[in-house]
Amino acid sequence: MHQIIENYFNAQIIREAFPDVLQGFWVTVRAALSIIILGLGFGLGFALLRCINNRILNALIRFYIEIFRTMPQLVVLIFIYFGLPYAGIRLSAFFSTVVALSAVLAAFSAEIFWTAIVAVPRGQWEAAFALGFRRSQSLFFFILPQALRLALPLVTNRMIAITKGTAFGVAVSLQETLGSAQSVMAIKANPSPLILATFFYLLFFFPLVMFSRYTERHFSR
């Protein structure tokens, strides 16, 4: 018992690690928010582009979706950080993480949004046309609001799963929550900073998981 307190809840070490891990936590929050905005924005954009029904555009978007849905996030991240410099494209650890995870989230959410748009019954389109709305107007005023409701639970779950991947930033030595906790741990030879990092992660992700439960309950039926 004493050993557990000494190693995991060592107050002095937690106090000393706090500023570093907090700074890391801000990096995590910034990265996560950028990923959510970019990923969902591009995802919705791709889904809307598919509504234009251009065959070449659709093929390109589907190709993109298939690729980024099957690649592990870590593969995308490593490729961007270690592979792209050979092509003369050098991104910082932070931007590599944001770009990699946004690309993955965009692929998943594009597919979910598109599936949801298609899932809205045809009668809704026909009713909107009958009322004299043009195609784009019908899409934005009638179909999209219903589609977003349908998509919300799935998108929230995916969003959480992918933003949790900010911890993969460690692989490209990004000093986010986990990375900074690990370096303090290495210096102090005590794993208490990891508990601090766990606390910070749960602080951010637990409310999101609760929110996803809420969306599942209220938007699934």
């Binding site: 949790k164 741990m185 766990t198």
Partner: peptide, 23 residues
């Protein structure tokens, strides 16, 4: 269940791999 879902898997791995040896 929600705690497990909110936990980044990498954080879990680092906890298991690097901190359990201290015990």
């Amino acid at each position: 269940i929600d705690l497990m879902r909110a936990f980044p898997v990498l954080m879990m791995l680092i906890l298991i791999y690097y901190s359990l040896p201290f015990l």
